[in-house]
Design a protein around this nucleic acid. Sequence first.
DNA 1: GCAAAAGTGTTGTCCTTACACCCATGC
DNA 2: GCATGGGTGTAAGGACAACACTTTTGC
Lengths: 248, 248
Amino acid sequence: MNTDDTLTPLNRSRSILIAEPTKLVTSYPAFPITVDCVIFGFEENELKVLLIRSDLQYFEGKWSLLGDVLKETEALDDAAYRVLCQRTGMTDVFLEQVKTFGSPSRHPGGRVITIAYCSLLNIHHHELKIYDNELHWHNVKNLSDMAFDHQLIVEECYQWLQKRIQEHPLAFNLLPEKFSLRELQNLYEAILGVELDRRNFRKKFFAMDFLIDMEEFEENVPHRPGKLYKFNFDKYEKNKRKWFAIDF
Amino acid sequence: MNTDDTLTPLNRSRSILIAEPTKLVTSYPAFPITVDCVIFGFEENELKVLLIRSDLQYFEGKWSLLGDVLKETEALDDAAYRVLCQRTGMTDVFLEQVKTFGSPSRHPGGRVITIAYCSLLNIHHHELKIYDNELHWHNVKNLSDMAFDHQLIVEECYQWLQKRIQEHPLAFNLLPEKFSLRELQNLYEAILGVELDRRNFRKKFFAMDFLIDMEEFEENVPHRPGKLYKFNFDKYEKNKRKWFAIDF
DNA sequence: GCAAAAGTGTTGTCCTTACACCCATGC
DNA sequence: GCATGGGTGTAAGGACAACACTTTTGC
């Protein structure tokens, strides 16, 4: 049973209806909220994440996610898109809410609750809006020395991505519009940390029948050029299978 | 580019380190935060969700999730467990964060951001702590007239559950410790909204080899009693398969 | 002509599905 | 003895894993 007497739902008598919701809400404790974007990119066969140097002296030299404070009347997703757009100049980017982190001690300046978003983009489709020279792509495999609980946040988003990429066609957000099957396979191998059989990988994607053959080939490669494909998002949306299989 | 001049990370010059994080955090806008628990139970072959009458006059007569305000120094998960424990008396209950909802207009008393948790429990393992007579189990299929955005929250948690139950042994949280295969199948059918072949369903679960045969039988059933099983969580934890299969 | 990667098929195994009959119990 | 659900097996088809050689291009 509750022992304090603040005006929380569990403390109030249930039989009296509250007529002044504004008064009620004003009585609640309030917390600063931020959104943090875990922005993944793919380059040189490595999965990368976009980080910036922390601007807190407390975390001097440590790396931090791109985030910003939620504004008074801004939707959560809008705040995340705003951060993305301001940093990368891109507006049509994959973005999804992953998890909210609210440990009371995660911020040295007081309690701040952050909503983590995961974002995937093609590194070569945009120029970073670098306001200073401290914005960089980092290999996901060697992260350390991060500010706040950002290492934990990246790890959870990375796990989320590993699972998600197997069930949804997210990978294509990380590649150029036209890509070779080798690039696609490299991407899956990098994200999942496994080696895949080339023949079976191709068979699987051709069997899905969501790849459009561009009848074009790679250029400037020091070996036989591979064919280029696009992912047929329209067809995928119409045909996506109703997922069902008990399996654990 | 930002046009206002509040002290958000995107507006500050990046070259100056901030020495007083507390001052910084205090300058951020702050929002009341609640946790809302979508508590699922299973009874009479129907998936149910635990709801209470809203205590806001604004939502008079409408149903609402069980929630409470986040306390100043309380971890998010702790707040959710507190709500669960206060309502159901149960402490060892499955609980997981699902998603954060923060539409600026979701609460009539001002902006309140809520973190939705999903919880699964065996209805018959506890007595509801009913402080008044307005706490009830509702069939998930016929929800309407809910307060706030709670209908949306329930829908998202239900979808989350449908997916999750196929990949993780969550179902056993909704059943008595000892259950028959029929009960298990009924549960899957109710949650997923499909009909399953009885023989194949049994084969699948026996093949997993995570069921412990209790050598006991149902009682007081008007037909041949079925065998009772327990789920072997220990064995599952040791053997759980590394999930990998591109499939979308 | 050599290095490097593209491209291609088959086979065996396993998993999934579809499907029908007898059995044990309560009434 | 009848109604109700418990319990079981098989066959066919589809998906997946393992595996090696030829082709094309750049240099």
